[in-house]
Write a protein that binds this DNA or RNA. Sequence first.
DNA 1: TCCGTCGTTTACCAGATGGTAATACTTTCA
DNA 2: TGAAAGTATTACCATCTGGTAAACGACGGA
Lengths: 215, 215
Amino acid sequence: MSTSDEGSVPADTREDIMEATFRALSEHGYSALRMRDIGEEMEMTRQVIHYHYDGKRDLMSSFLEYIIDQYEGSVEVDGSAPPREELEARVHQCLFGPGFEEFSHWDRMKVYHELFTHAQNDEEHREIFNEHYGRIRGSITEVVEDGIERGVFRDTDPERAGQLITDIIHAARGRKLSLGHDDAPEQAWRSIDEFVVDSLLAVDADGPDTVESDA
Amino acid sequence: MSTSDEGSVPADTREDIMEATFRALSEHGYSALRMRDIGEEMEMTRQVIHYHYDGKRDLMSSFLEYIIDQYEGSVEVDGSAPPREELEARVHQCLFGPGFEEFSHWDRMKVYHELFTHAQNDEEHREIFNEHYGRIRGSITEVVEDGIERGVFRDTDPERAGQLITDIIHAARGRKLSLGHDDAPEQAWRSIDEFVVDSLLAVDADGPDTVESDA
DNA sequence: TCCGTCGTTTACCAGATGGTAATACTTTCA
DNA sequence: TGAAAGTATTACCATCTGGTAAACGACGGA
């Protein structure tokens, strides 16, 4: 943050290690990841890792927070668009990545999903993921909530709808990554539109903002 | 198959190894799995594994087929019930396991999901999973197809609907396992009912085969 | 200029890990 | 009976793995 360009700045090293970890994880997968693999992705020797992190476990926990921060930081929306458009914009971003593929979005997702699944064996990781997941789902849920309040969406449990959308997105990504179904995000996109959004738009009462879409 | 009870029968040993592998995998997780762990779950020494399987990789591939066979074998339905009930019965089975929890359904699912995610790093595993996944999705899809033909469900792409349901089920299981959301299957069940089944039942034409959807 | 601190490298290792070779036991069949 | 084949056990190891200790070098203050 404060220092940034001179040679012997330590703060940059930690960032380098995180990115090296990402690359190593991306290439070898979590189960085969060796400290050596991370070292080979860095310009410095692998032993620096032990200077900055307290062993493999500590490194992985820090990395988990690192990649989660990145993920959440990449989600950007204005919030001023009407509910339907707003919802679709967020879903689109979750399914196809942020605007221009700034980094390798899917490489990132691959690592993310692998760590997600591994959380079932690691209580600490599970907790970190739970907090994160709550925020992600919440960000979808509040759009649904807003739509219901404005009368654009029919009256339903926004939590459940948000959870459903989040689940569909998650499953589609996992399917693309694990099974190689490259069209999974596109399919999910259409399914959300046909089943979820369509259903939400089916308002039958003429509430405060009497809005309708298909007629 | 042919021999079954006497002491020195080899066929049983392979089965023992598979079950030991399951237990070890269940306890330690894929990434930490050692051949020794499997050995400790067996009555015999761990070296027998090397006699029956050609190394760790071969063992894991065989195990993947083993657990997939088990999974598919546990899905049983009559097929004579009306579409809606039939569909719900299958979804119920996928979400809550077969009737009485014969074995530890969720322990099995835990291992299954971990291997599923790992498939993104293993081409061979990916292929095995793809064949399996096709069958699972197909089994849901054909119920939707049947419902459409009978005019109970509205006219839509049965593949997409089947895929959607499969995805939701998969995501709910993953969420329960990785995040500890024990109510995820129940939530998924309600979501499928509220959004998918409800939408499918919205037939607006009144002929047995003259089905239309949006007007 | 000298010294202490921080960050990095080099050299090294104790313990673990997958796997093998030789041995022993058990059944089958001539 | 006994030899061949099949299966499990014991003993063993080459290699790998995460981690540490000591040396090295650069920077900043006194």
